[in-house]
């Protein structure tokens, strides 16, 4: 069992070593390395601590949880501003025992955090890709012709919510994306609507797994 101090250190080292090819300078990080080393997660070579194979897996896992937490906080819970980083830091230690995969599925296996950094893939992501199972992603990321059901709306703006609802976009409404350019066009019920990107970027859709265009039975 590794404690949260080691998790922080691994996370940091992972970000530096794997993603940026740099080395952390912070005392607090290096101080935790001894313990990480005895757990077999890092090794000391050429005057530097490096992640072992296990360490890379563990570090990637923490980074993944942190960035998933950021996504969850910003997209679904609509938390923004200065507290977000702290909240995400606390959150990442809670997302254990497969909870991270559940949130990953809920969020539709996002590939980047709100700051644009990559989220390391989890088991669930690989499975989703292999099985082409249902995914939740933004309406504006869908493929033209794809059908799905509105999963949730992530907007803090009452007027936006009002507009979306006027178009019949509610959690649970069936929706089909028709065009993405120059504006987004979709069908809800027997009506088609067109919206711009800011509006399309608050609608998360639970896409149907397969969308053969000749499928006649499904509505």
């Amino acid at each position: 069992m590794i404690n949260s101090l080691i998790e922080e250190a691994l996370e940091h080292l992972y970000a530096c070593e794997v993603e940026d090819a740099t080395y952390p300078e912070e005392e607090s990080i290096l101080a935790a390395m001894g313990e990480a080393s005895s757990a077999g997660l890092v090794e000391f070579r050429d005057g530097r601590y490096r992640l072992t194979r296990d360490g890379q897996a563990a570090g990637g896992d923490v980074v993944r949880r942190h960035r998933l937490a950021e996504r969850l906080l910003s997209d679904v819970l609509a938390v923004a501003g200065e507290h977000m980083p702290e909240d995400a830091c606390r959150f990442e230690h809670v997302l254990q025992h497969g909870l991270d995969d559940k949130i990953c599925i809920l969020l539709g296996h996002p590939s980047t955090c709100p700051h644009g950094k990559p989220i390391p893939r989890g088991k669930c992501c690989r499975k989703a890709r292999g099985d082409r199972i249902e995914e939740i992603s933004l309406l504006c990321d869908g493929k033209p012709g794809a059908k799905g059901v509105v999963a949730y709306l992530t907007t803090r703006d009452d007027r936006e919510v009002q507009k979306l609802m006027a178009m019949g976009i509610l959690p649970g409404s069936p929706i089909q994306l028709i065009r993405r350019f120059p504006s987004y066009v979709f069908q809800v019920g027997y009506s088609q609507f067109t919206v711009d990107r800011p509006l399309a970027a608050v609608i998360y859709v639970h896409w149907e797994s397969e969308n053969p265009p000749q499928d006649q039975k499904k509505g």
């Binding site: 178009m167 009506s191 088609q192 609507f193 067109t194 919206v195 711009d196 800011p198 509006l199």
Partner: peptide, 11 residues
């Protein structure tokens, strides 16, 4: 001044 416009329309 003021916020940018937002576009939504029934077709």
């Amino acid at each position: 001044p003021g916020r940018g416009p937002s576009f939504y329309m029934e077709l």
